[in-house]
Amino acid sequence: MADGQRSEHESFDRRLVRKSPWIFHFNSGGCNGCDIEFVAALTPLYDVERLGAKLVASPKHADVLVVTGPVTLQVAKSLKLIYDQMPEPKYVVAIGTCACSGGIFSGGYTVLGGVEKVIPVTICVPGCPPNPKEIFRALEAIYKGEIKVAGGGCGEEQNRG
């Protein structure tokens, strides 16, 4: 990407945080499918690490919270707690259909629904599971500053592209 192209996207908060996205991965009750695709995005073939992305062990070091799976009642509070611990500005990426809306599990007696019900979401990446390339592109959008902190969410307006 050319420098000129990048500055076009740069917003004010982007200029404040000019650094690599560090990622905290949170499984909110998913089936593992999105998790293995997310880990596959970190491994040599797709290599998100070329964006400087790094998987960190503590939410206090993270810029991006990657959430996979429908939010179950048992983890809802942990999710809120972890989101609150992250420093500002923070981005939330909901990976997979379940994290976007509850997907196939909506209606279950322990399933709350999408991540949006608990915390604001910056980007939704639907798919069951999304291809690692798609996950790469979502993280790249954050890296390039194409997306502002306050989230668009998975609303109906986004439905048609």
Binding site: I123, R137, E157, Q158, G161
Partner: peptide, 10 residues
């Protein structure tokens, strides 16, 4: 189709 391209509302 690239329907699923992540976009922000802003």
């Amino acid at each position: 189709l690239v329907i699923l391209r992540p976009r922000s509302k802003c």
